[in-house]
Design a protein around this nucleic acid. Structure first.
Length: 264
DNA sequence: ACAGTCTCATTTGA
DNA sequence: TTCAAATGAGACTG
């Protein structure tokens, strides 16, 4: 019998195991003694400030909180399963190192009319907001004070679906905005790696930052996180159920990009 | 031994 | 000019 599983919370048990196994410093998304209190306060309303947890490292600045109760996260997940239409065919393909691949997940984009988001040779036009996506966007606005105009939906059908290391450093992203990541469905591990700690001969040794993204959680990636840190959602074969991730962004038009560009 | 995980190489075109 | 939202190979590990 795994001694960790006798703990009250399986989730924190998993955290401790993982840290022990890999000898890596791992951020604990929820401290055991704070967990019960958080869950019950979230249950009511987010009219009062959320219990944010700061995640910090050199050049990394994130905030993590539980935005939705377990029940509401469940409800929202089911609604999105009905509402969201994912891309198929060539819109579900990207180009990496000159080769085409189908993405190992499903993707959709929603937002204000006309907004477009591009990466790795794929160009995705925003569909109009659905009721549930608009509701979640509203909850994110109340929690952050920012109104996002676009969301990228990633659906991971099970632990074999994943996303590789990358940065969200596209030109069209407003640098003044954080990226707000909402998780629903299965909990999944999430990993940050510093750009100077990658490759054959890393210039520096910087520990990765790992966390588990719980259903109903909100992760804010603030500047300059996406300049220095790559992130990924690695495959986890033991995960058998789907996860939906919503990354809210602020996209600026071509004209606005001109304005933001340092003039000479 | 084996299955899951991790790290590195890839080398074209945006 | 830089460097990659992908996979696959080889190493590690419990």
């Amino acid at each position: 019998m795994d001694p960790f599983l006798t703990q009250a919370k399986k989730r924190s048990a998993h955290s401790m195991n993982w840290e022990k196994e890999h000898h890596w410093k791992k951020f604990k998304a929820c401290k055991e003694d704070e967990w019960e209190e958080e869950e019950s306060s979230i249950e009511e309303e987010f009219s009062h400030p959320l219990p944010w947890q700061k995640i910090e490292a050199e050049g990394l600045d994130c905030d993590y909180a539980l935005l939705f109760s377990k029940d509401e996260a469940d409800r929202l997940f089911n609604e999105l399963e009905e509402e969201v239409e994912y891309f198929t065919g060539e819109k579900a393909q990207i180009r990496v190192f000159g080769k085409h691949y189908s993405v190992p997940r499903k993707q959709a984009t929603y937002g204000d009319p006309g907004l477009m988001y591009s990466f790795s040779g794929v160009h995705l036009l925003a569909r109009p907001w659905t009721p549930t996506l608009d509701y979640i966007r509203d909850a994110v606005t109340k929690a952050t004070g920012r109104t996002f105009n676009f969301v990228l939906v990633n659906r991971y059908k099970d632990g074999s679906d994943h996303i590789g290391e990358h940065r969200d450093d596209e030109k069209e992203l407003d640098p003044g905005f954080p990226i707000a990541s909402v998780s629903l469905g299965a909990a999944r591990d999430f990993v940050f790696r510093h750009r100077e700690a990658r490759g054959r001969k890393p210039r520096r040794h910087i520990d990765p930052v790992k966390l588990e993204l719980a259903p109903g959680s909100l992760l804010l990636m603030n500047q300059p996180t996406n300049t220095y840190w790559y992130h990924s959602l690695p495959a986890r074969k033991r995960v058998l159920t789907p996860r939906i991730n919503l990354t809210f962004r602020c996209i600026v038009s071509q004209a606005q990009q001109q304005e933001l560009r340092p003039s000479q």
